[in-house]
Amino acid sequence: MIEVKNLTKSFGEKVILTDINAVFKPGQTNLVIGASGSGKSVLLKNIVGLFTPDSGEILYDGRDLITADRDMKTEIRREIGMLFQGGALFDSMNVEQNIKFPLDVLTKMPEDEKLDRVNEVLKRVKLENTNDRMPSEISGGMQKRVGIARAIVNKSQYLFCDEPNSGLDPRTSIKIDQLLHEITVEYQLTTVVVTHDMNSVMEIGEHIIFICDQQKLWQGTNEEIVHSGVEALEDFVFANKMMRKFKSL
């Protein structure tokens, strides 16, 4: 479980997040939604330790990432898997080397065991026999799936995804969402997905928090989101004509 308590972050004079509180439980897909520039990616980068918040606590099963010493920070980070917006696959490595990378650097596993583990996760993300392909030779959707495979290969407990559907067609997006949800349930991961894609919200939003004007304005499930009664959220959810028509029914 991840707990975010009273998190505040600003860049210089510009306040990005104010007093954010959230609890992300394992075994469910937690979504952070909000308009572009609302600060949801900044929240994610604070949670994974890429940014340091101005104040607040980030607890990974009770361990505070901010006040942790270097060894503890490293220990927590090694339990984290992250899927980046563009995949962030290493260009100079093929699919197999990309996925095997965390095992090479972070573990002392024998080589054959590593390869077994890589093939196991490749099968899990339905990318068997792509071991030798380079990132530039595979599609955006496949790159995302390789990113997911790399994030879970080291049996991470926490999975973070920054806009996993950006640049993907709706059908592929749904497949990625479903894959994330299945993996979350199967491995009992604490998964946090940052998105502004309403398809994802409707598909896998078991626990959603909505960020607007630097604050958390609402939290709930995908079933509750259409009746939130929060104006900013309704503007966000019913942004297109089709959704407005659906609301009026």
């Binding site: 220990e75 980070r77 984290i80 992250m82 980046f84 962030a88 290493f90 260009d91 650097v105 972070l106």
Partner: peptide
Amino acid sequence: GTMRITEQIDALEVMGINSVSY
């Protein structure tokens, strides 16, 4: 620079690897 803008350096940091040293 390319690794930085494509978030490959962030990926290393998230894994708990000292990206400068590595």
